[in-house]
Amino acid sequence: MKRRFSILSSIYVIIAGATGIIILLGFFFNLESWHLQGLQTILLDWAIVVAAFAFLLGAVNVVRVNVMRVRQRKGALYSLVTLAAMLLTLTLGLLDGPQSLALQWTFKWVLVPLQATLFSLMAFFVVVAAWRVFRLRNLASVLLLLVAALVLISQVPLNFPWAEDLAAFKNWILAVPAMAGSRGIILGVTLGIVTTGLRLLLGIDRPYSE
């Protein structure tokens, strides 16, 4: 991909790179001695603020999408409900503050039940998935299923004499082979993160400039 040399693009790279380097140095060195500690703290605080704006940006986007849906009459009722609920919550919160009774009531009796129940539906789907998807096809799937069944059975200790040994075996499985596998995965992922981050800091990847 050819990139025209653009001063603007270079500025972005410099911003990202400089910010990154200062913060990164903080991991390696004690910045106090370089009087950079304050700068790092400032940069971090700024990053938090910008991240907050990013979150708000997402929220605004959701509003936009829903407004559009209302306009297009595509699932309009639900979008209306969404918008109305959002507006109401915002009003309650902005007027009276997040500590207000109204907002806390809303949180406790509206948000929590809704969100918690939505996720608890997963339990049912997991059962259906377990029925439909887990077929013994090859050694890999046999292994998968065996370990899953073992862990499921022994996570809640049974009242049989052999249950303790089973639980001990389960603990061993979790602590040794499963852990080895996940450690490998984590290491791989982390290496990838380091690579990606470096590419970004060095300006090789520039996701910020289109």
Binding site: T82, A85, T89, L90, T106, L114
Partner: peptide, 10 residues
């Protein structure tokens, strides 16, 4: 829909 609205608002 209610959840989405309240959640985002909150």
């Amino acid at each position: 829909a209610l959840f989405v609205g309240v959640g985002i608002g909150y």
